[in-house]
């Protein structure tokens, strides 16, 4: 050993003992406002049977304090944005003199819609995310401008549509006309990108429950989106989260709203089939 190395080892011995972080999901249960029971663990969909038995919401991998914020709407910072979207819902905009309410009634009448997106649209012959559908209503039925993908207005509206579906099982179709898109999403999920050569599966399928530095890896489920993140004190969209994860592999990312992220959203959503719609959720 060199002098320097001995000095270094001595220093380390003086330092605090290494804190070994304990991994794995916890066994807590989530009931929102004392009445909405959230299924946070469910049998894995059949197509995942080779790789996992159970799908688990990201909620189980967060601290007790963060978890508690989601159990009551008065504590959930994401609900402020849901209230903003309620106002927007009733606001007349565009050349046709209509609001969302003009066609759809109360937001509560949309219960269950969020659980099935992304899904196939027959007329347009395309897979649509909820934001694409909302924008289609805005441009085609209201004569209003489309909202920016994952921008504030769009995310708030998705949070409202999610909030009224809470507790209902995610049930995204994976066959029929969406199958090709689903296959593309699957391919993206397993592609090792960037200079770190990591895929979604490397972190969220092979290593969920493990710590990566200070982060407790979850299964990367999207049933809780939009998520209010304590880290950036804002509601976050699915594609923005994907973008951050891809960037962290030292890769060139895709853009929110891109065909790649639409396909990836369909595939990742389907991995959570059976979990409850949970958004807006609280994460760190």
């Amino acid at each position: 050993m060199t002098r320097k190395a001995i000095a270094l080892t001595a220093l380390a011995l003086l330092a605090a003992p290494l804190v070994v972080q304990a991994g794995g999901p916890d066994d807590d249960e989530l009931v929102i406002n004392g009445e909405i029971e959230i299924t946070t663990k469910a049998p894995a969909p059949a197509f995942l049977s080779d790789v996992m038995d159970e799908v688990i919401s990201g909620w189980h991998f967060r601290s007790d304090e963060t978890q508690a914020l989601e159990a009551d709407d008065f504590d959930n910072p994401g609900m402020i944005f849901v209230d903003k979207a309620r106002e927007q819902w009733d606001t007349v905009e565009g050349t046709e003199g209509k609001s969302c309410a003009s066609c759809h009634g109360a937001p509560e009448d949309m219960a269950g819609v969020k659980a099935t997106y992304p899904k196939w649209n027959d007329d347009a012959e395309e897979v649509r995310t909820l934001q694409m559908q909302v924008n289609d209503c805005r441009t085609e039925r209201m004569g209003a401008e489309a909202w920016k993908y994952d921008g504030g207005d769009a995310i708030n509206m998705v949070a409202l549509l999610s909030a009224v579906s809470r507790g209902m099982p995610v049930n995204v179709a994976i066959d029929g006309p969406v199958q090709a898109t689903w296959e593309l999403g699957k391919e993206l999920y397993y592609t090792r990108t960037g200079q770190l050569e990591l895929s979604c599966a490397n972190c969220h399928e092979q290593n969920y429950g493990n710590y990566i530095r200070a982060d407790h890896l979850s299964q990367g489920q999207i049933n809780g989106f939009p998520t209010y993140r304590l880290n950036n004190a804002a509601l976050n969209g699915v594609h923005s989260r994907f973008k951050g994860c891809v960037r962290d592999t030292r890769a060139e990312t895709y853009a929110p709203g891109s065909p790649e992220f639409i396909a990836l959203e369909l595939y990742v959503a389907s991995r959570g089939n059976g979990l409850s719609v949970e958004g807006p959720s609280v994460r760190n």
Binding site: L11, A15, Y211, I212, A214
Partner: peptide, 19 residues
């Protein structure tokens, strides 16, 4: 490296991973 590996000699740096 400590993002994925625990190293007792580097205990000064917070949060070692378990990947």
């Amino acid at each position: 490296c400590v993002a994925c590996h625990a190293v007792t000699a580097l205990a000064d740096a917070p949060f070692h991973g378990e990947v």
